[in-house]
């Protein structure tokens, strides 16, 4: 009996031990699994959001350049969000009424196409969803106070130099003027490759918006240009200070449509043609036998 009991006991304890080991293994496995998943959702999505979205969007922080995304996943289907994120313009053009309405609401401001994989986009929205379901109550543009309003003259001047490329960006990124134009006295006409930045300060959400854009440019060409040459925070401050000034002064900076190079060049060409014509006027242009040849041809 005793033997049986002992045997049973042994068996029981073995079984128990075994089950504890199994449970431990399961626990560790699931712990690792959970940790890795939370890491995926937590750290990585945060980073992608910050890099790609945060320059224009907040989650619960109110409307910036684009809308506040808190609770967006409960408002829209995932399919719609995927399409919108990949190419909002294509969606608008396809005749989607909701997309059109949003575009109108934001004054036709275009959301840049995001060159992200479906998984990344999904993970971003999962990340947004994790922040809460209820749409934010702070749905109007937050009255963010712009520190650049108080910028010193020297900051503005530094920003101007950086914009014009007179002062080189410390990480060797291209100067703003190579692609952008602004109407500001004393600044040469800039490039026409990208948008005019005269009113960018108010258009793109002031300090916060510009800081987001310049810190992590969302536009494909700009992304490529500054990928390996990021603009430092200090420089961003100067540039914003300058752009703020430009925006404020834009009414006084009406650049006349008179283009001295175009009209001067055109006038010069006309003048030269007149001179050539005057020189040409007294020249021997035809053979002196022209009359003879013509008369002979007529007589045939």
């Amino acid at each position: 009996m005793k033997t049986d009991f002992q045997l049973l006991k042994t068996l029981k304890s073995r079984f128990y031990m075994q089950s504890i080991q199994t449970k431990m293994k399961l626990l560790i496995f699931s712990g690792v699994l959970i940790f890795s998943v939370t890491h995926l959702y937590g750290e990585n999505s945060d980073e992608i959001f910050k890099k790609n979205c945060s320059s224009c969007h907040t989650i619960g922080g109110g409307r910036l350049v684009g809308s506040d995304l808190k609770g967006i996943t409960s408002k829209r289907t995932e399919e719609w969000l995927l399409k919108w994120t990949k190419s909002s313009q294509t969606l608008i053009k396809s005749g989607d009424a909701e997309a059109k309405r949003i575009s109108d609401e934001f004054g036709g401001l275009i959301m840049p196409d995001q060159l992200l994989s479906d998984n990344d986009i999904k993970s971003i929205f999962a990340y947004i969803a994790s922040k809460g379901d209820n749409p934010s109550s702070a749905s109007v543009t937050s009255a963010v106070s712009n520190t650049s309003d108080n910028a010193t003259e020297s900051d503005i001047q530094k920003g101007k130099f950086i914009f014009e490329g007179i002062q080189r960006l410390s990480n060797h990124g291209p100067a703003c003027i190579s692609c952008h134009n602004i109407n500001y006295k004393g600044v040469l006409e800039g490039g026409l490759l990208a948008k005019d930045l005269t009113d960018v300060f108010s258009r793109m959400g002031g300090d916060a918006g510009l800081r987001g854009i310049l810190g992590a440019p969302p536009f494909p060409a700009m992304t490529e240009s500054y990928k390996y040459h990021p603009i430092t925070d200090e420089e961003i401050g100067y540039i914003i200070a300058f752009l703020n000034k430009v925006d404020k002064d834009k009414e006084n900076q009406k650049v006349s449509s008179f283009n001295p190079l175009l009209y001067g060049g055109g006038g010069g060409v006309v003048g030269l043609l007149i001179i050539y014509w005057l020189l040409w006027f007294g020249r021997k242009k035809y053979t002196v036998k022209k009359e003879i040849f013509n008369r002979q041809l007529e007589s045939i």
Binding site: L279, K284, T287, K289
Partner: peptide
Amino acid sequence: LKNIFHNPHLPVLDD
């Protein structure tokens, strides 16, 4: 100089 060294009064072959 006026004619940038061109010689504009030459007889041409038809002359």
